[in-house]
C-alpha cells in the first residue's frame, strides 16, 4: 500500500472562500508547480479521493455539502484546510453567514495559513498530509491485523 503515499488523489471544495486560495490550489496542479507529475490528481469524485483540500470559512448552505463530501470519502482520509478563512474565518470571520473555520464542521488535520495561501505552502501542506495519511493507514492496517489475529486465536481456541 506504499503507493498511496506517493500519489494521493485530491478532492477540492470551495466552502465560501473568495476564490483566491482555490485558484492557487489549481495552480499547484498545473505547470510551474505541477504536482500532477507525481501522480497527485485532482478528482471530482469524493469516493476516489484521499485528501480533501478545502478553502473558505463554511457558510450555512454548504455545511451539509462539506459533511456529505467528507463522509463519502473512504478511510484513510486527510483534511487540509487551505487559507486563513478555512482556519478561522479570516477577514470574513465577523460576517453573519460564516461559521468560522472548517473545523467547526469536520475534523481538520493540516492547516495551511495565508491569504491567499501560496502554492509552495499548499504543497508543503499536502506533504504534511501525506505523512498523516500514512500514519492513519498504518493504524488501520494495524488494527485490522490485530482483529485478524484475535479471530485466528479465537478460531484456534475453538478447534482445540
Amino acid at each position: 500500500m506504499a503507493f498511496l503515499k506517493r500519489s494521493p488523489w485530491i478532492l477540492h471544495y470551495d466552502a465560501s472562500s473568495c476564490n483566491g486560495c482555490d485558484i492557487e490550489v489549481l495552480a499547484c496542479l498545473t505547470p510551474l508547480y505541477d504536482v500532477e507529475r507525481f501522480g497527485i490528481i485532482n478528482t471530482g469524485n469524493p469516493k476516489h479521493a484521499d485528501i480533501l483540500m478545502i478553502t473558505g470559512g463554511i457558510n450555512e448552505l454548504n455545511r451539509a455539502v462539506v459533511k456529505n463530501l467528507y463522509e463519502q470519502m473512504p478511510e484513510p482520509k486527510v483534511v487540509v484546510a487551505i487559507g486563513i478563512c478555512a482556519a478561522t474565518g479570516g477577514i470574513f470571520r465577523e460576517c453573519y453567514n460564516i461559521a468560522g473555520g472548517v473545523d467547526k464542521v469536520i475534523p481538520v488535520d493540516v492547516y495551511v495559513p495565508g491569504c491567499a495561501a501560496r502554492p509552495e505552502m499548499i504543497i508543503d501542506g499536502v506533504v504534511k498530509a501525506l505523512g498523516i495519511l500514512e500514519e492513519k493507514r498504518a493504524k488501520m492496517t494495524g488494527s485490522a491485523q490485530a482483529k485478524e489475529e484475535t479471530r485466528h486465536a479465537a478460531e484456534a481456541g475453538e478447534s482445540t
Binding site: 457558510n59 450555512e60 448552505l61 465577523e94 453573519y96 453567514n97 461559521a99
Partner: peptide
Amino acid sequence: IKTAEKYPFSVTRRGGDQCRNA
C-alpha cells in the same frame, strides 16, 4: 440565497452585531 440569519439586511433585524464568532 439561503442565509443563516433570515433577512439579514432587513430593517427590522435584531441589533447590529450578530456575529456568531465574536
